[in-house]
């Protein structure tokens, strides 16, 4: 993502853009728009399938007994909190406060990692819960479409978080090279955009995939 606007990017000038918005940000927004459709497709697949799957082949899948809503609520809170750190990191780099930026980035990474750890725990726990296995596929014995859509949807989200964590790690490493300056604010802001987006997607996934199983 550190592609630089070539045609007008003369290091001696502020790059000219027609709209005044930095081009990288336009790119990021376009990407996020596209990503919305990715998650939209996955979430609608899940919604279409969640009721069919519960009783496939006469086997009833008791989702409530499989889900661990306390843990997921906790990890949701953690992910939301990480967004705060991200916002603070962006604000800090705009002000040129490198130490603060570094700490805030670190906080975001740690919280992202906690979220990922929760998800890993969740996946293994669900897949092997005795008597209530939620399996991904027929290779693991009885399989439910619910398992397929659940793992692929939350797994895709988890992959997004993981990519975000690695990206932030990159910035953290970069902050120790001493080259980081307010000139990088734009790039970190794009990273922040991505992070907030991933967060927002989770805010949709959490009620639609988890809470709804308790309500309807």
């Amino acid at each position: 993502m550190s592609e630089v606007v070539a045609a007008h990017a003369d290091e001696h000038h502020e790059p000219y853009t027609s709209t005044g918005i930095p081009t990288k940000k336009v790119l990021m927004w376009a990407f996020l728009g596209s990503d919305c459709m990715f998650f939209g497709t996955l979430i609608s697949t899940h919604l279409i399938y969640r009721k069919i799957s519960a009783t496939v082949n006469g086997k009833y899948l008791d989702i409530e007994k499989i889900f661990d809503i306390e843990l997921t609520s906790f990890s949701t809170f953690i992910l939301l909190a990480s967004s705060l750190f991200m916002a603070l990191a962006v604000s800090a780099i705009h002000k040129g406060n490198l130490t603060s930026t570094r700490w805030m980035l670190f906080g975001t990474i740690i919280f992202g990692a906690i979220f990922l750890a929760c998800q890993v725990y969740e996946f293994t726990h669900f897949a092997y819960a005795p008597g209530h296995e939620l399996t991904l596929s027929t290779y693991q014995g009885e399989a439910h479409v619910f398992g397929s859509t659940f793992y692929v949807l939350t797994g895709t989200h988890g992959t997004h978080v993981a990519i975000g964590v690695f990206w932030l790690l990159g910035w953290l490493a970069y902050s120790f090279t001493g080259k980081m300056s307010t000139a990088d604010a734009m790039d970190i802001e794009c990273c922040g955009l991505y992070w907030h987006f991933v967060d927002i997607v989770w805010i949709i996934i959490f009620p639609v995939v988890y809470l709804m199983e308790y309500a309807f």
């Binding site: 939209g40 697949t45 479409v145």
Partner: peptide
């Protein structure tokens, strides 16, 4: 950018069906 995600997800699901035995 708005249409390709749909096919990409459909293909991912198909890939999982073919390779990992999911039931999409």
């Amino acid at each position: 950018i708005l249409a390709f995600p749909a096919i990409t997800i459909a293909l991912v699901e198909l890939m999982f069906d073919r390779n990992y035995g999911t039931n999409f």
